[in-house]
Amino acid sequence: MESKPLILVTNDDGITAPGIRALLEVVQTLGDVVVVAPDSPQSGMGHAITVNDMLHVKKVSPFGADIMAYSCSGTPVDCVKMGVHELIKRKPDLCVSGINHGSNSSINVIYSGTMSAAVEAGIEGIPAIGFSLQDFSWEANFEPAKKYIRSIVQRVLEEGLPSGTVLNVNFPNLPAEAIKGIRICRQAHAYWQEKFDKRLSPFGKEYYWLTGEFINLDKGEDTDEWALAHGFVSIVPVQFDLTAHHAIPVLNRWNFENE
């Protein structure tokens, strides 16, 4: 009898987040699942790992006795590392991360713990997908995303992914009937125009709160930002080889010899 695919499920909003429960409801019908997720919210952690502190892992059962689940005191990347190297008996066939409360389109992929967990799985040679919804609310409605998650996960399980690639999937915050379908996109050229809001604590100490405005400079109709703004699910293939290959010929023309 052929065994079911083994799917590692993680996130960055924490093991109690509604988004991971919604993701689990879909993928547990497609394979055997193991959940390894942070014990508290870890949004914006990027690819951080724990190197100067202890890691604590605890077996938990927030999803019922049939689902093997662990909470981890570390980052989303720590969760993937612990899952792959310590907690799971065989290498997962797929890693899914999310569903994140809030978009991870465009430059947000750099800061995202959700996507960094997927990237870490990709580095381990595991096909991986990060899922995010354009709604930061804890009461976000994940139901419209579920049919697309099922379709994308099934396709990746059947086809695999190109070498060195993971998928960044973002859902518009729309009712099911308003979502127009899926678009394969490139990452939009955008950035955060940041500022620090200087405040005073009740004890008279100064502190800062990071704020900012998202600036999209990209007018292309092949980007994730365009797709989301026009009612499509965006899929961006993300590579974790950060080499700027186009810059190598330029740098090779430089003269590094001392004159």
Results as ranks from 00 to 15, higher is better:
N168I: 10
N170T: 12
F171S: 01
F171V: 01
N173S: 14
N173Y: 09
A176G: 10
A178T: 09
I182P: 01
I182E: 13
R183K: 15
I184C: 12
I184L: 15
C185E: 02
C185I: 03
R186E: 13
A190G: 04
A190T: 01
Y191E: 12
W192G: 07
W192Q: 06
Q193L: 11
E194V: 02
E194F: 00
K195L: 12
F196D: 10
D197F: 06
D197S: 11
K198D: 06
L200K: 12
Y207A: 03
Y208L: 14
Y208K: 13
Y208F: 13
W209A: 12
W209V: 13
W209L: 14
T211L: 14
E213Q: 12
E213R: 11
F214D: 03
I215N: 05
I215G: 03
N216Y: 00
N216V: 10
L217C: 11
D218L: 11
D218Q: 05
K219I: 06
G220M: 02
G220S: 12
E221L: 06
T223H: 02
T223L: 08
D224Y: 10
D224N: 14
L228K: 02
H230L: 06
G231M: 05
G231S: 12
G231T: 03
F232H: 05
V233S: 04
V233Q: 01
S234M: 10
I235T: 03
I235S: 07
V236Q: 02
P237C: 08
V238S: 05
V238A: 08
Q239K: 11
F240C: 09
